[in-house]
């Protein structure tokens, strides 16, 4: 294990922020100070205080509790989105990059078509066909994320497929599948890891955007995006309602960006 100090500064800051965020998310799964959907008429739009550290929303729900739950939702959706994108992207990119030829041409043109649509637009179309809800959002965003990962992985495979160690593995009679996934794939991990981080950020923002538009997480369930959307009406009377979920989005994205930068620098 390398010494903590030897890591780049942005990596360290990113790790601390991400660590705190992850801690809050994990805590949020098991414990929230109040019931995140429990309403308290006497505390409507309450300002931050010792009882409600982030204040309360227009139904008197504790914002801190909802932020904790909402971060968990946002995080899981982003994670699932990136997972779909990465797994499919690796499969498409690995085969097109390794084999080349007509398979490459066909799959990459399909890829270009998907790539040409903005991911939010693609997800909107998808959701309007299959209905709202978090699973559809995950699927829609996941598909929209495939092309960028596929391109990155494909580029790496093109770089590695003619390396001497791949040739000697081929000569040793190693099957193509084993060469792709055992010999080449681990080599692409450094590049893949930082793009996963960036992809994760985009997913957090996309989820927030979708929920803000009202097609992601459905009320009364909380997500950072849907909270922002609800807070919009009270922006002047209760700014804390919008500020805290927004701040959490910023911190999550910032933490991961710094972490990704740090990984790239190493």
């Amino acid at each position: 294990m390398k010494k903590w100090k030897s890591y780049p500064v942005n990596f360290r800051i990113g790790a601390v922020i991400t660590g705190i965020m992850l801690l809050l998310i994990v805590v949020g799964f098991f414990y929230t100070p109040y019931n995140p959907t429990g309403m308290d008429n006497s505390a409507k739009l309450a300002a931050p205080s010792l009882r409600h550290i982030m204040g309360c929303d227009n139904f008197g729900r504790d914002i801190f509790s909802r932020v904790l739950k909402g971060m968990g939702n946002t995080f899981l959706i982003a994670l699932a989105t990136v997972a779909i994108g990465v797994v499919c992207g690796i499969i498409v990119g690995a085969f097109t990059g390794y084999y080349g030829g007509w398979l490459d041409e066909i799959l990459m043109r399909v890829n270009d078509v998907v790539f040409a649509f903005p991911s939010i637009l693609l997800a909107l179309v998808f959701v309007s066909i299959f209905g709202t809800g978090k699973y559809n959002v995950v699927l829609a965003l996941g598909i929209a994320f495939v092309p960028s990962f596929a391109r990155i992985v494909r580029g790496e495979f093109i770089k590695y497929r003619d390396m001497d160690y791949v040739k000697s593995a081929r000569l040793a009679g190693v099957s193509s599948l084993r060469i792709i996934f055992v010999h080449i794939l681990p080599n692409t991990m450094t590049v893949l890891l930082s793009s996963i981080m960036i992809g994760f950020n985009n997913a957090v923002l996309a989820e927030a955007g979708m929920s803000y538009l009202g097609i992601g997480v459905q009320p009364p369930d909380a997500s950072l995006g849907s909270m922002l959307s609800e807070a919009q009406t009270y922006l002047f009377s209760a700014p804390n309602y919008a500020v805290f979920p927004g701040l959490m989005i910023i911190l999550m994205v910032l933490g991961f960006s710094l972490l990704a930068d740090g990984i790239k620098e190493r």
Binding site: M163, D164, Y165, K167, S168, A169, L171, A172, G173, V174, H183, P186, N187, M189
Partner: peptide, 20 residues
């Protein structure tokens, strides 16, 4: 093939997989 033919390349830097 792999059983009966072996190969050594010119560049020892790239002929071994760096992550294994």
């Amino acid at each position: 093939q792999g059983d009966d033919i072996g190969i050594i390349f010119q560049e020892p830097m790239t002929s071994l997989n760096p992550v294994k």
